[in-house]
Design a binder for these strands. Structure first.
Lengths: 238, 238
DNA sequence: AATTATCTAAACCGAAAGGTTTAGAAATCG
DNA sequence: CGATTTCTAAACCTTTCGGTTTAGATAATT
């Protein structure tokens, strides 16, 4: 078969606790696809050892192994070799699972029911640096992604966000408190007396229905009084 | 042209501040695609009014309008009509922009340089509930998505995460403090004396190099001592 | 067997935070 | 113009928190 030579530069590791499945996948990758299958691992330990030794280009991993948690294994693999590209194999398309797998750094998601040609294409694409997600799966991912973003917002912008009842000055005070400073420091920063700060703080407590500084800060963070540390971090990461 | 009748049920709104571009897009959607273009808006106000009045199925929006911030407009549109499906049009493929646009609820991202047939396909797909992202763009989105996730992690699991130096008991104490309770309450919950809690807390302060409760809680949240409110919220949202 | 780490607990003191009331000045609103 | 809101500030008092030292019990480690 001429195709067998075509992709022989790409080293593939198969991870599946079911021997027959593993053999099947190996067959597709090796015989039909012509990839260099360097081995099959039937459990997490073997898998991690092989990653350490051989640093495969692509890992085909069954994500639904009963004894091993696929997500955890994926995390461990990524710790050993951040460059290895993992394609998740699974029997069904669960939006939450897809989301989590992609979040953990998988580069492809293929249903076992898909045609073997698709698996081969997935290996080619992923080893080439691309992402392989069948459109149905991609749609689910995006729906989930956007839904989680919506939730984040609706929570922050909800009607009963008590932060909306704060005056500007109170917001300023609270914002400074989220930096973990004392009332005295807040007073210095705002050029006002520390007794004034205490007055503001007491008003804040009543409005937010909390009874101490820490609770107020926690409320502020969880309800969107810009949590700067996190927000900035994401933006810097561009 | 027979195709003109094919998609006549789908109502489309074109948003572009450049008149010629708007006309061009309108032409493609209307003449080539056979969609019902209900109008073209050249600025944010007109756009929002048309959305209010006509509730189009799909909005084709130029995201790079000099006077208007596309992202802000997108947010406003979504506030008026959460069901409307927006396809972002832009001249170039910027990973950060793609990420933000999709985060804000766009359902498609199309480069102006793409063939008109692709725009028509995008409208069909998106109005059909699908997501339309050319594979090049999708790849950029995922790279960006995964990078931001990685950053999150490397931050939390970094070597110099002082939380790693805490003992189990200290972690327990700190975790309770992140609920915003007093030392006395912590003592009650852990069935220990409140002076013991104070001892633990003082050790925590030294290890985390902070000087009060609020700072310790902030450190815990920013460095991954599970911020339960947020984590749970995302999971519930499934 | 001795050392180290961890968890427990108390006493002491000063500093910070929390609760309440009162009140003046400025701005906004009806 | 009076009423309300907001920002400012003080006095008073109680509770909580933070810093320090000391110390017993247990478990793990060398």
């Amino acid at each position: 078969m001429r195709r067998a030579k075509l992709h022989s530069g790409i080293q593939v590791l198969v991870v599946d606790d079911n021997y027959e499945h593993a053999a099947g996948i190996r067959g597709i990758a090796s015989l039909d696809g012509g990839f260099d299958v360097i081995g099959t691992a039937s459990n997490a330990d073997v898998c991690l050892n092989m990653v350490k030794k051989y640093h495969p280009d692509v890992i085909l991993m069954d994500i639904n192994m009963p004894d091993t948690d696929g997500i955890t294994l994926l995390q461990k693999i990524k710790k050993i070799d951040t460059n290895v590209r993992v394609i998740a194999l699974t029997g069904y398309d669960d939006a939450d699972l897809i989301y989590r797998v992609m979040k953990e750094g998988a580069r492809g998601y293929v249903l076992k029911t898909m045609a073997s040609a698709l698996l081969i294409q997935a290996i080619i694409d992923v080893s080439d640096g691309k992402i392989f997600l069948p459109s149905v799966i991609a749609a689910k991912f995006f729906d989930y992604f956007q839904k989680s973003q919506e939730d984040e917002k609706s929570y922050v912008n909800s009607e009963d966000n008590l932060l909306n009842y704060l005056t500007q000055r109170e917001e300023e005070v609270l914002e400074l408190l989220t930096e973990g400073i004392s009332y005295k420091e807040v007073a210095t920063r705002l050029f006002i007396s520390d007794t004034t700060v205490k007055t503001h703080v007491n008003n804040i407590f009543q409005k937010l229905q909390v009874s101490d500084k820490t609770q107020a800060v926690l409320y502020a963070i969880n309800n969107g009084l810009l949590n700067k540390t996190r927000v900035n971090r994401t933006k810097i990461a561009v």
